[in-house]
């Protein structure tokens, strides 16, 4: 009797111990993840903040050893991002609309959803190669347009996904009510479904912007880089990620400092956008 008792106690203790170990390991894993986040952000702030001054926003990228700022890459990044959003968003929203409204139960929609989800995590450098082949190689030179198209292609899957998801959340009773009043389907979509899903769709665009803001790989051989300030969309254009890449790998101290400052700016922008998107989406879920 006593022996069985001890045996049972032993097993009980062992199970408790395993449970305890697993708990500690899980907490450790979460701590591990949070530590890296903290470390990365901390280093970024410490290294990037030192170089942050007005010149960063008002002066061009310097030659090695000179003083300067990041004006041309900042403006270049903004131009490329705006163009990419202008290219990718309409296409993404329309495609998402088809999937959620007209072709909700069609075979085509499930195929597109599958392909779109793959494009969502496909390597961005491959998109760069694609745009290089169809634009840069054809035109014979690098251009801001090519960079914008490459980023635009990356915008599409994000917007398609969120648009479809958000439209699917719009209750059918709303659509039925407006159809019953005699509205044709396209006006139902435009005036009722879009309005109900607006916050979510804007969130999707913000997420897409956050995604392309830090993208470097597809720009390397499409928009290339430009040491000078340029508005010309047919010429190479400078962008923050590419300048960070170039400056960080250079042997010059002040270039590396600018790279850290640029890295801080980009991270603040991207994280700010993601948090904004999150706040927007949590506040206004379509009812």
């Amino acid at each position: 009797m006593a022996a069985t008792e001890t045996k049972r106690d032993g097993r009980y203790l062992r199970r408790q111990r395993t449970n305890w170990t697993a708990t500690v390991l899980s907490i450790g894993a979460a701590g591990f993840g949070l530590t890296w986040l903290a470390l990365i952000l901390l280093v970024l702030v410490v290294k990037g903040f030192g170089g942050l001054n007005l010149a960063v926003f008002t002066e061009m990228t310097p030659p090695p050893g000179g003083a300067g700022g990041l004006l041309n890459p900042i403006v270049g990044s903004l131009i490329l991002t705006v163009l990419a959003v202008l290219i990718g968003t309409p296409l993404g929203i329309l495609a998402g609309t088809y999937m959620a409204e007209y072709g909700r139960y069609s075979k085509l929609t499930s195929v597109i959803r599958f392909i779109n989800d793959i494009l969502l995590s496909a390597p961005s450098i491959v998109v760069g190669l694609f745009v290089y082949e169809i634009m840069v190689a054809r035109m014979g030179h690098f251009s801001a347009w090519a960079g914008a198209v490459a980023l635009g292609i990356l915008v599409i899957p994000v917007v398609v996904r969120t648009t479809e998801d958000m439209l699917l959340l719009v209750p059918n009773t709303l659509r039925e009510a407006s159809s019953a009043l005699g509205l044709p389907q396209w006006l139902v979509i435009r005036h009722v479904a879009y309005r109900a899903a607006r916050a979510g769709m804007i969130t999707g665009v913000l997420l897409a912007v956050a995604r392309i803001t830090g993208e470097t790989a597809p720009l390397l051989f499409t928009a290339l880089n430009n040491q000078f300030f340029s508005w010309d969309l047919n010429a190479p254009m400078s962008s923050l990620p590419v300048v960070i890449f170039q400056f960080a790998l250079s042997p010059y101290q002040d270039w590396q400092q600018l790279a850290w400052t640029g890295a801080l700016l980009i991270t603040v922008a991207v994280l700010g956008l993601s948090i904004l998107a999150r706040v927007l989406s949590s506040k206004k879920v379509p009812t």
Partner: peptide, 23 residues
């Protein structure tokens, strides 16, 4: 904590690169 972990996904890959190389 969930949001903090997801922020790791938000950090652009070039930041991981520069941090990886220098730190």
């Amino acid at each position: 904590i969930g949001i903090a972990i997801e922020l790791l996904a938000g950090i652009p890959s070039i930041i991981y690169g520069i941090w990886g190389l220098f730190v």
